[in-house]
Structures are given as structure tokens and as C-alpha cells.
Simulated assay, not measured.
Amino acid sequence: MKPVLTLLDRTLKLARYPQRTNETLQAWDAADEYLINHTHDMVLDPQRPILIFNDSFGALSCWLAEKGQVTSISDSYVAQQGCSQNLAANELPQVTQLDCLADLPANPQLVLIKLPKNNRLLTWQLQQLCHLVPEDCVIIGAGKAKEIHTSTLKLCEKHLGETKTSLAVKKARLVFIKPDSSLVKPMPSPKTWDVPEHGFTLSNHANVFSGESLDIGGRFLLDHIPQDPNLKHIIDLGCGNGVISLKAAKLNPQAKVTSVDESYMAVASCGENAKLNLDNPEQIHAIVNNCLDGLEAESADMVLCNPPFHQQNAVTDHIAWQMFCDAQQVLRPNGQLIVIGNRQLGYDEKMKRIFGNVQKIAQNNKFIIYKSGK
């Protein structure tokens, strides 16, 4: 896959993060190119902020880094690392990077939004902007034409202002939003619901996976988490709202639980749920990270994992590979990796290649839970 974006007589070296040998996926898309072409001739005030939402790996941040006070807002730790990496590779100044729960700079002149698939996150970001942007602010969303639905446009109209769309170019489309301050309303609270069979109340920020109900894979895994007094350190890899961490902590009160996710909103939710549900919330330590980067080798007794099979909008299995390889490094001798996945994903083959062994713990008509020992 070509690592160079050449557009408007300018060239940028752009890579996905983490970088892989023989990468098959590109670090930008047609929506990025459409936004760049559309905004190229805009006259910008160097003293007023430019806000970029959901910049996948920093293509937009790199393009605009020298044109003003750029702030990139993303819920993804991996996207932020990719942005920093690409800015450095092109010898560009670093931009300000914020997570989606942070306060935003006042009086922006230009807002670019890579429209997220998650409507709860889109609603959150639109309402943030409605509180913030002045009437002269230019707001442009972008995404794949097939993913910009009538419902997407209605959300923009409802929460931010009058909305119009462009023609499609290379299967991408722009969305133009005129801010309307009369639409300002209080920011939405985290979604809260109960899991009565396990005694949990779960709070979920806008971009948490399965943030409106317990996903069926997680529900199945909850019934198969080991209880063992010899467990001292458990890792919940890809923790989401932390429900697996909570169950592991309650079953094993002697163990420290490290909950890891690349979503800032997931990690914030996990920390809040520890306070809601545990007598000792400090038993859970929730961190943002790219898989298990930087964690001490041979420091954990068990890793619990429900791997995602997509990165940004791309379907891929490399995250599962990285999770399993990282788990093998972090587990102590005789430690265990326990993984749940859809039956067709074939995680058992990967686990056997990395660990040399794999065992089926449980299955239903949709999911299989596997275990590998180090």
C-alpha cells in the first residue's frame, strides 16, 4: 500500500499505527482528500483555532499543522499515536491532541469532522460544538457516501444547525453545517443500565462498545471467568466499560486487575464503573494503551480478551494477532490467555501458533471461548 499522499503539489508520508511490515491498508481515505481539496484555498486566521474531529491517523492534522492553531480531538489512543508519528515523519509541528471528554478551545474558525459510525459519539460531538462555535465558524463533515444516511443528516440538523451535502467524489461526501446557537442543550449524561444477574450497574460514555446494553459475547464470557486464589494480576485486554474486569475482580478479590483499552471513553467508563460496583475500586486500574505496549514482561497470571476485528473503518485481524502476541509476553510461566470470539474468526489457530496449545472452554451457537497456557 502506498505510504505517500500527493495532492495539490504537496506530498505527505503517512503510515497507520502501529506500523506493520507489508501493510495492506492506507493511512487516509477519499473523505480526507475531499476535505483537503475543499479547504485548500480558505483564508485562515492564524490566531483562531482549527478543530479536527476523529482524524484517523493524522492526515488532516498534517495537512493543516502549519496553517494555524490546530487541535485534534479523538477518542482513540491509537489514532493519536498515529497522528504524532506522521507529524514527526513529515517534520511538522505537533498539534494539540485532546480526548473527547476534554474541554475544547474557544472561538474556532474551522471545524472538520470525520463522521463516526457511532451516532451516540456523533451526537456528543455535535452538542459540544453547539455550545462552543460562533456563527461565523465553518463546519464541514466528511465520510463515505454510503455511510452518510438521512438519519446522519437529521442528527446534524437536530443538534447543531442547518445541514446540506455535497455531490459524491470518489464515493465520499461532504456535509456542511451552519451552527445555530438556539439548539444548545445540556450535554447528555452517560448511558446507565443494570446487569441484574451479576449485580452490576454500568455507566457508559458515548463511544463505548455496546454502550446501550451488554453485548452477547461479553454476557457469555462473564459465566466462564475463573475464580482462583492463586491469581495475583489479571489483565482485561480491550476492556470496554469494564464489565469483565468487574466480574474478575469480584471473583478474585486478592487480585489486581489492569483494564486496558484504546478508547479514552471506555477507560473513563471502566474507572467510573469500578467506583459504582466495587467495595475497593482501586482493585481495578484502567489505562489507555495500544494493546499491552510497555507492560512488564511476565507480570500477569491471566489475560481475558474479546478482540475487535476492525481498526477505524477497516476490517482486519492484525489487532487480534497483536493482542495474543502481547499477552504471551506479559504472562508469567503457566499463565493463561482466555479469548472469546465469533465461531468463524478462527482465533484458535492463531493462539495455537503463538502458544503451542489451545483448549476450548465453552461454546454456544455464536461464540467460542478458548484458553491457551504459557
Rank of each mutant, 00 (worst) to 15 (best):
E23T: 05
E66Q: 07
E162P: 02
P18F: 05
T21P: 11
A255H: 11
Q254R: 14
T39Q: 12
I319N: 01
S189W: 03
Q69E: 13
T71G: 01
W193N: 07
Q19V: 09
K232H: 07
A79K: 11
I369V: 12
H38D: 07
L160H: 00
A65V: 12
P49L: 03
Q47L: 12
I354A: 14
N119L: 11
T150K: 03
D9G: 13
I361A: 12
A286K: 00
A286Q: 02
H285T: 08
I369F: 13
D136A: 15
P188G: 10
I52D: 14
I73Q: 09
V78Q: 02
K146G: 14
E66G: 04
L121T: 00
E212T: 02
Q363D: 07
R120M: 06
Q227G: 04
C270E: 10
G346M: 12
R332Q: 14
C239M: 15
Y347E: 00
S151I: 07
G141V: 03
K154N: 08
P333Q: 13
V260Q: 02
I177N: 09
K360V: 04
K250F: 12
G341R: 12
Y17E: 04
L5H: 07
A31L: 04
L237K: 00
K256P: 01
S259D: 01
A88D: 06
K13W: 14
L64I: 04
P229A: 14
Y77G: 13
P307V: 07
T150R: 04
C239S: 15
F53H: 02
A297Q: 10
L222Y: 13
V288Q: 08
M323G: 10
L292A: 09
G82W: 06
V339W: 08
T163L: 05
P46G: 06
K247P: 01
L295W: 10
I216P: 03
M302C: 14
C83F: 01
M265F: 01
V95C: 10
N252Y: 08
M351S: 13
A274K: 06
Q94P: 04
N90Y: 08
E298T: 13
Q69W: 11
K146I: 14
Y347I: 00
W321Y: 08
Q329E: 11
D180R: 05
F209R: 11
C305N: 03
N273I: 08
D9V: 11
E197G: 15
Q19I: 08
N365F: 14
D228G: 10
M42G: 15
V260R: 01
I73L: 11
S181P: 06
M187S: 08
T163M: 05
A142T: 10
F176E: 14
H198L: 12
Y77P: 09
D279G: 04
D99P: 00
K256I: 03
K350Y: 13
E23G: 05
V169M: 15
S189C: 04
G161L: 03
H198Y: 13
P307C: 09
E135N: 09
A206V: 05
L44F: 06
